[in-house]
Structure formats: C-alpha cells, structure tokens
Write a protein that binds this DNA or RNA. Sequence first.
DNA 1: GGTTTTGGTTACGGTTGCGTGACAACCATC
DNA 2: GATGGTTGTCACGCAACCGTAACCAAAACC
Lengths: 229, 229
Amino acid sequence: MQKRILIVEDESSIRDMVAFALRKSDMEPMAAADAREAQLAVAATVPDLILLDWMLPGMSGLELARRLRRETLTAEVPIIMLTARGEEMDRVAGLEAGVDDYVVKPFSTRELIARIKAVLRRSHGDDGSGVIELGGLKIDGPAHRVHVGADTVPIGPTEYRLLHFFMTHAERVYSRAQLLDHVWGGSVYVEERTVDVHIRRLRQTLQPWKLDGLIQTVRGAGYRFSANV
Amino acid sequence: MQKRILIVEDESSIRDMVAFALRKSDMEPMAAADAREAQLAVAATVPDLILLDWMLPGMSGLELARRLRRETLTAEVPIIMLTARGEEMDRVAGLEAGVDDYVVKPFSTRELIARIKAVLRRSHGDDGSGVIELGGLKIDGPAHRVHVGADTVPIGPTEYRLLHFFMTHAERVYSRAQLLDHVWGGSVYVEERTVDVHIRRLRQTLQPWKLDGLIQTVRGAGYRFSANV
DNA sequence: GGTTTTGGTTACGGTTGCGTGACAACCATC
DNA sequence: GATGGTTGTCACGCAACCGTAACCAAAACC
C-alpha cells in the first residue's frame, strides 16, 4: 500500500527534490511550506509520516512537532526532523517532543529514503487503521485493547501505553529516560527505575501467552521490543 | 586510506580551488576540463568519487553522468553534480541518471568537503540509518545489535561500544590510549592493558563465525579493524 | 642464543545493573 | 469511608560484567 509522506520545508528546491525521490520509491508526497499549511494538509489527509524542517518561518519545526503530537489525529504519525549541521545539540529537545529520527543536511535523497523506510518498517503491521500486529501480539489503538489470537489481554493503562509505544517503535533500543519521555511525558518527574518495574509488570501480563520474551533487556542501554527471535 | 576524487569542470579557477581543498582534507584530486578528458582519466585510474559540472563544453554533465553509469568500471562510483543557481529544475533529470548529490554554486569548500565525506561514508556500508555492514559483519546502532547473516551475535556493553567504534573508523590504526579516549571516554582512568583484554574478548565473541581476524594487531602501534583480508 | 619488549591469555575480586517482591500512596467506584 | 485496582519507590539479591595483575608466548633487539 502506498504511503503518504508530508514534507514541511520552506525551501522549494528541497521540497521538489524530495517529492521526486518519494514518487520514485512508490510513496505519495504531500508538501507544505510552513506550519499553517502543514496543519491544513494534515486536517485534509492524515499522512503516514511527516518530514519536518527544523527551521520554519513563523513557528519552529520543533514547536510544530509538539503540537502535532498533542492532536489525537496525528499523535501516532512518525516524525523525521531535517536539521542543518550544528543544530545537533538539540536532539534531546526533539526526543522530548516525540521525534522519531533525524536527518542532518546535507543529505542525499537516497539516504533520506533509507531513513523513511526504516521508520515505516518500525511501525510495521500498521495498516492505517491503528491496529498493529507484531510477534503474535495484536494491539488495537482505537479500541484500546490487546489481543493474542482470540484472547484479550487484561492490561493496565500505563502498561498499555508502554506496550503501544514499543509496538510502534519495534526493533530499537530505548533508554529509561527516553521511555519516560515518550510514555510518561516529559513534564512529570519519576525515578528511572520505575521503568524497570513497569517492564516487569508488562512482561508478567504477557507471560501466560509466553510472549514476555518480546521485551528484551539491553544491559547498559535500555529495553527493546523485538519480534525476531 | 586516501581517496581519489575526479573533478570535471572547465573553469580552471574552480578546479584549482577544489583541488586545494581536497588535498587539505587528505584526498587526492584528479582533474579534467571536459567529457573527453574525464573519460580518459577514468580509464587510466578509477576514482572513488566524481565531481561533475552541469555545464561542460561539448557534452553536458548530465549526459556524461549517464554514460559513466552505463560503464561497468564506473557504474558504482558516486557522482556529485555542481550546478549554478537557477538550474534547480533539472535536479530530477540528474536523480534519474543516478546522481548521488548536488552542490549549488557558489559553494564554500567546507560545504563541498562535507558533502563528499557524507557520500563516501555512504558508499562504505553506512547509509545514514545507523546500520553499518563491513566484512560480513553488520552492526545495527538503533537496535543495538550485531549480526552475521541471519545470526545475532551475543555481545556485552563494552565489547559493543568497541566494535561500534571500530566499524565506524575502519582501516585505521588506533593506539590503546586513543581507544580508551573514544570508547571509555576521556574522564575515567583505566590501565592501557585493559584494552588488550577487551580486544581479546571481542575476538572471542566473533570467533564462532571466524571473524576474529577482522581485528588486527599492529605491533608497537595499536589495533585496527579491517575488512580487507 | 639470550635478553628485552610487546602482546595474548587466564583467573579473580569488586562493582554495577537489573529483576523481583513488598509496600504505601493514590484514585475511582460503590 | 470501604474496597479493589493502579502507581511510584525502595531494599534485597543475584548474575553479568569490568579492571587488574600475573603469567605465558612471540617478536625484536643485541
């Protein structure tokens, strides 16, 4: 199925170049020159992924990312930020805003496409309906439910958010701090070890179906949801 | 390992400027003023990267790019096009011809060098997604994983950091002190011989796949990761 | 051939990171 | 205000990991 990619960038030459590369890779480009156009575009058609320039006229890309994350419509749409060299220090702020990846300018279209595919692959199994199936586990976003085959898994709110984040960001390691940012939200302060406890609880709720191995510990780095082996 | 860069450009002042910048960045410049000279130069010595002016006397840079792509000798050599401002509409044609990147005149040598390095990095197994493949070994940064074919290599934290550093800095010798700086971080003090032990451990974890030879000892100097025999 | 230097290998004590169980605080519902 | 469920924190214990020293093997030097 064809993916829709929204590119928010005020420099038209970059927009054109990216749009062409996207079409060539069987993706459908949508374009916006600033934050306002972006919000209009999103309201009309929800894209599968958003490319966001760090510097935009009016509102910064970062601020736009935050707003998009707050809108229920676009809260789950992955975001890749385009940053100029030297702006790399702000990655932390981006992570808090829920940015999925960064591409540093100058980039070649080939590189950009590779990243886009990587991010889309991560949320694999998401057919647009908000239902993701991975490793024998099915999470239903709209219904707020988790299934294994015909069974429904009883799961608490925090565990659910944690699992949902993992399943939309599979095959990638997240530190406790990053998980706190994404699942708890950057504003509240809780101990990092709290993550451990919730990981444990999540594993426990998955145990009856022998699926606790899906959540893996990477010593010294964090945790990873992986459907492979 | 020194890289050879062929610059095809009829304006001699630009040729000289670029050649100077290349030498300063430890790259070897080759020069050609038109398509004919370029083809002769390529036949004599295949460069690692080609800088191609959009406007050339006789044959256009674009047409030359297409021809180079068809030749088996140069089909894999990355190409960066130099275009004057206003020629941007034709980027699409360049991308179709297999051009890797663009630099718009006037450009700073710093920017040009940055682009060259980015493209070269990519041609060495690093596509920017954080996954590097070298010598049969694949290291996945985001997933914090090491693969050999379909297998996953079990690896500890320090070994992983060491291997990651080596794979992002292949074909170059690093002293124990430098490795301590880069892998352990400059702040902590540990004995230099500790590096030896971790090299040993890393070799041991790679042994089951007969890949321990990738890490070579350079007596009196340090260690080197090399994918070339 | 013997000595010195350099790196390989092994074993071990100490540390750290993570899993686990318990518990108090909080919240919603009745 | 009682009950059941959920959440954040802490303390304990284990297993993995790390750094060091000591010893062995191999070059390099004389």
